[in-house]
């Protein structure tokens, strides 16, 4: 009985780490600017398609495509931020929602035009396939790789936020944007950098997600829901919160689908609504 449970626990955690990569950027940018970016997963999707294209049409190895998935998402994010988002920082959340839903719609259409609506395959290198068996429990090698990658990134982000000057700027801005501006911090500029970094991580997450959840144009909306759940449960602007919430949601989702498949996604929505009503600022949010 314990074997399958540990297996589900591990798969859930691995899935949670994927959600963490996809959502941490949105959490921090939301915390800084209160900008509701519903196009966040469109940037993640871009990373996924970059990886697919490089591997299929240019025979790049999987690992070589990952930095490019990150960079392309980050670069695109900068362009959008400078051209469109910047003008709506002080607009109503309705305007922000409308603009970013619009961008997400466009991204879905463009992806469908270029790649069709079919699932995109990704050919993993042989050493990432298969699984290790430990005490009768199967650990997929790719999932182990995913967990390690996410842990390293979480650690680096945490250290950066805590100990670098840039991290201090971000923390100040999340804590109290007006005060930070008053102290002479250029919030808009550090936001642009954070936004690029966060979108880049989403792009990386998108590339890493293909093997686990597949990639088609619906990605931009389907995983947006999960990402928003993680962000609102974890609390805005909190890396630790995102990490814990992503693990929790990842595990609930996988366990729910494994043990009570007839409920489907119902369970996860219920968990989210209950948590939001109980703690509207998220499990770890301060506001």
């Amino acid at each position: 009985m314990l074997g399958p449970f540990v297996g589900v626990l591990f798969d859930g955690f691995a899935y949670g780490m994927l959600l963490f990569l996809l959502s941490v950027g949105l959490s921090v940018t939301l915390g800084m600017m209160n900008f509701v970016n519903l196009a966040h997963c469109a940037f993640a999707m871009l990373g996924g398609y970059v990886t697919v294209t490089l591997m299929r049409d240019f025979q790049w190895p999987f690992f070589a495509t990952l930095p490019l998935a990150f960079l392309s998402a980050a670069a695109t994010a900068v362009v959008f931020e400078r051209a469109l988002y910047r003008r709506l920082y002080r607009a109503s959340e309705l305007d922000q929602v409308l603009l970013t839903i619009g961008i997400a719609f466009i991204s879905v259409a463009v992806a469908a035009y270029l790649y069709g609506t079919v699932q995109q395959p990704v050919e993993l290198p042989s050493y990432l396939r298969g699984s290790w068996t430990l005490l009768g429990v199967n650990f997929g090698i790719y999932r182990v790789f995913l967990v390690v990658t996410a842990l390293v990134i979480a650690l680096v982000l945490g250290l950066m936020l805590e100990f670098t000057r840039f991290g201090g700027t971000i923390r100040a801005a999340v804590d109290n944007q007006r005060m930070a501006r008053g102290l002479g911090i250029d919030v808009d500029r550090s936001f642009a950098v954070t936004f690029a970094l966060g979108s880049g991580l989403a792009g990386l997450g998108g590339a890493l997600a293909i093997e686990i959840v597949g990639l088609d144009p619906a990605f931009a909306f389907h995983y947006l829901v999960y990402v928003l759940i993680v962000v609102s449960v974890g609390g805005l602007g909190s890396i630790g919160g995102s990490f814990a919430a992503a693990s929790l949601i990842g595990f609930s989702d996988v366990a729910g689908k494994y043990y009570v498949p007839e409920l489907g996604a119902f369970l996860i929505y219920l968990v989210m609504l209950a948590l939001l009503m109980w703690r509207p600022a998220g499990l770890f949010g301060k506001r």
């Binding site: 603009l99 961008i103 259409a109 035009y113």
Partner: peptide, 21 residues
């Protein structure tokens, strides 16, 4: 196809927010 329809909707949304608040 629905995808192209939503391309139009997306462009429309961006345009309305930016130019026709």
């Amino acid at each position: 196809t629905p995808q192209y329809w939503y391309f139009g909707i997306g462009v429309l949304l961006v345009a309305v927010v930016m130019f026709l608040p």
